[in-house]
Design a protein around this nucleic acid. Structure first.
Length: 717
DNA sequence: ATTTTCGAGATTTTT
DNA sequence: TCTCGAAAAT
């Protein structure tokens, strides 16, 4: 029973409320993963529910692994296959059920990079170049278009046969439609399934095939969703569908930590949960176990500038500590220098390097400079990001060689056909494109069919084709790691890397082969399974070999905690990002800062530097520094208020929204008298106000004259 | 005539 | 790291 010991009353309530719809609103460091884990154990242990009857959606694979470890710690070794991301659940589901959409069981999961490749190829085929419609924009448009009507594009296109789809894109009148339909055609041709499709297909099947849907809904007795504030509308719909039969849906989240809006998350989903489930009970976990009161105070002051939130009062139990430290440097080099000096000081005072993290808005903030200083000072560090294991060039190459064996798709072909160099350059590739286009075949097939032609006489293309064909033919006999080795040997890939002389790359390849070998220990494991896994679990958590300082983006730091946190690059244009223009985006930037601050347990260090940004503007300290409350911070240098002069933040927050009232504030309306602001609706530009005289809430336009009765920090309810 | 190499410039966040 | 373009190499 020790999964219940040490829980506070609120947490216990969350754990033991097992029926119906439950919403847990949890602040940072409130032990929400703890509550979720305990509830899982409680259901299995007390109610005799089998793990296969509980779907627990986590936001990252890392979080899933962490939860599994904890549950197994309490209950022993169990198969916890449904503690996973929605995407991983859908991959499992579709493997069994996608045949109803006439897709093969071994459909291919494609990632953003594949999609970009496909689009690039379409653009080139169409000889289409435009400054206004870049590949990136086209991809956004494609994703956006599909978001609108979950099922419709499946009805219209995925159930259409390829010939009709082809006619549709040829007949399209606008460039956008041409690209969109052409893209769907290309994707369908290879039975590709992107991350959105995984969810959308699953929903589609659940909604349209009752014979499949009903057994699943009966089987899944409990649905639990972690990090609900980052769930997209579509994922939410999936959760509702699966929980539809038993009605047990349990969500945990913190609207103030919504940092994935760009991926479809919206604060409203959490705030409006009771509208979907009128009987839902809400449990508030506001007690912060993690950070010192000083850190919580500054973070709380900052987040109170947001309008789209549930007001809450954060309480702390930790003993008092130092105020967060703010350092403004004259140059980015001096900023890095200061940060690393502090780290050295902490280390010499006995802080383990593992307890220290450097956090930033975007990878670009990490310059060669900071790495150089860390190296010269002999401080081991590890960057969690950009070049994660599977993102490394040589690993991607290896994966694409394997994909050539399994799928022979164009994206993999483009990555592998000329690595190492085989004298197949642009002209030859264009030739292949024409062939492929004309005959409706893949690039690889086109190459195979033209091996005898003069064009490829002088190239090493035949080696390439022979290697792939050999491994394809012998795949059943070869173990996966041997298959890859054969590919390497026959194509000379590894040899070329060896000649390149980069030992790191060879080490990485060796590690990749070990992974592959581990995977193929299981006799059932197929190449397709492995590729599915690499597509879904691209961030394998490798244990750091040595004690090291961790560098990561705020997004990557979500859900983690560190004794000491350095939040660097707190400049206007970086945090908040210059790309965040409208007020809602600005709120997201503020939430990001809030998330970063609340990672810290004992010490929080904030820094920025003067100098120029890449676009030539002079950098200014972030407005968020001021919004934390200057008296809540410890300034390394005497305070220079001119750094936040009124001209320092041009046009970021729309002027007419600058003076918005905040939820909870008491106002007087000329006609309707006194009332309290319940919600601020930015979409419709109205305040939702509960007036004393009225029984129902009223909407009042932003520009209506309202007298502020008195500002208040007190929460409503 | 093609392919390869090399330097410069830019890069939000991720399942 | 990736892309682009121009110069160098086959």
């Amino acid at each position: 029973m020790d999964y219940l010991t040490g829980l506070n009353e609120r947490q216990k309530e969350a754990v033991t409320t097992t029926e119906g719809a439950v919403r847990v609103a949890a602040g940072p460091g409130a032990g929400k993963t703890r509550a979720l884990t305990s509830r899982y154990c409680y259901l299995v242990d007390n109610y005799g529910i089998s793990p296969r009857q509980i779907l627990t959606s986590t936001f990252t694979n890392k979080a899933a692994n962490e939860m599994k470890r904890r549950v197994q710690g309490y209950l022993g070794d169990l198969d916890l296959g449904y503690i996973c991301t929605f995407h991983a659940f859908c991959a499992q589901f579709l493997k069994d059920e996608i045949h109803v959409l006439n897709f093969p069981k071994n459909f291919q999961i494609i990632d953003t990079e594949d999609q970009k490749h496909m689009l690039a190829r379409i653009f080139e085929d169409m000889k289409f170049t435009s400054r206004d419609l870049t590949i990136k924009k086209a991809l956004d448009t494609i994703l956006e278009a599909r978001k609108l009507e979950a099922g419709s594009y499946i009805d219209y296109f995925y159930l259409m046969d390829n010939e009709r789809l082809k006619r549709a894109y040829l007949a399209a009148t606008t460039i956008e439609d041409q690209i969109f339909l052409r893209y769907l055609y290309e994707q369908k041709k290879i039975y590709g399934c992107d991350f959105n499709d995984l969810i959308a297909f699953t929903i589609y099947i659940l909604e349209n095939f009752p014979d499949i849907s009903q057994p699943w809904r009966e089987k899944i007795q409990y649905v639990m969703v972690d990090e609900f504030q980052d769930v997209s509308a579509r994922q939410y719909k999936l959760a509702r569908l699966l929980a539809g039969y038993h009605g047990n849906i349990f969500i945990v989240g913190d609207p103030d930590q919504t940092i994935y809006s760009w991926r479809g998350a919206h604060v409203h989903l959490f705030l409006d949960f009771p509208k979907k489930y009128p009987q839902a009970i809400t449990i508030d976990l506001g007690l912060n176990y993690r950070s010192t009161p000083e850190i919580v105070k500054a973070a709380d002051r900052l987040i109170n500038h947001n309008v789209l939130r549930l007001p809450r009062i954060l309480e702390t139990i930790r003993p008092s500590g130092p105020k967060p430290v703010y350092f403004h440097a004259d140059s980015d080099h001096l900023e890095n220098d200061w940060v690393i000096q502090q780290i050295e000081r902490l280390r010499d005072a006995g802080t383990a390097l593992n307890d220290i993290a450097i956090i930033y808005r975007a990878h670009s903030v990490v310059t060669r400079d900071i790495e150089e200083i860390l190296t010269t000072k002999k401080i081991p560090y590890r960057i969690y990001s950009g070049t994660e294991f599977y993102a490394r060039m040589e690993i991607k190459d290896a994966v694409c060689y394997l994909r050539m064996v399994a799928y022979g798709d164009d994206a993999s072909f483009l990555r592998t056909h000329n690595v190492p160099s085989r004298k197949i350059g642009r002209k030859s590739l264009n030739f292949l494109r024409e062939q492929a286009e004309e005959r409706g075949i893949s690039l690889y097939q086109a190459l195979k069919d033209n091996l005898g032609s003069e064009r490829f006489r002088a190239t090493a293309a035949n080696h390439y084709v022979r290697a792939i064909e050999y491994v394809r033919a012998n795949l059943k006999r070869l173990s996966l790691d041997n298959a890859l080795q054969s590919l390497f040997d026959l194509t000379g890939y590894e040899q070329s890397q060896r000649l390149g002389g980069d030992q790191d790359r060879l080490d990485n390849l060796a590690e990749f082969k070990r992974h592959l070998k581990d995977f193929s220990e299981d006799d059932e494991a197929t190449l397709e399974d492995f590729l599915t896994r690499t597509a879904l679990f691209s961030n394998i958590d490798r244990q750091p070999l040595t004690e090291s300082v961790k560098l990561m983006t705020i997004h990557a730091a979500k859900g983690l905690e560190f004794k000491r946190v350095f939040l660097i690059g707190l400049s206007e244009g970086i945090l908040p990002s210059r790309r965040s223009q409208d007020p809602e985006e600005m709120e997201e930037e503020r939430r990001l800062t809030y998330v970063a601050m609340t990672r810290a347990i004992d010490g929080l260090y904030l820094s920025d530097s003067a100098g120029k940004t890449t676009d030539g503007h002079y950098k200014r300290p972030s407005r968020f520094i001021a919004q934390m409350g200057l008296d809540n911070l410890e300034f390394v240098h005497p305070l220079d208020k001119s750094l936040w002069a009124s001209n320092a933040h041009p046009t970021r927050e729309l002027p007419n929204l600058d003076n918005l009232l905040t939820v909870g504030e008491l106002v007087v309306h000329q006609a309707m008298g006194p009332g309290q602001i319940i919600r601020v609706d930015l979409d419709n530009r109205v305040y939702v106000i509960k007036f004393e005289k009225m029984s129902t809430e009223r909407s009042v336009r932003f520009d209506t004259s309202l007298t502020l009765l008195k500002p208040t920090d007190v929460a409503i309810h």
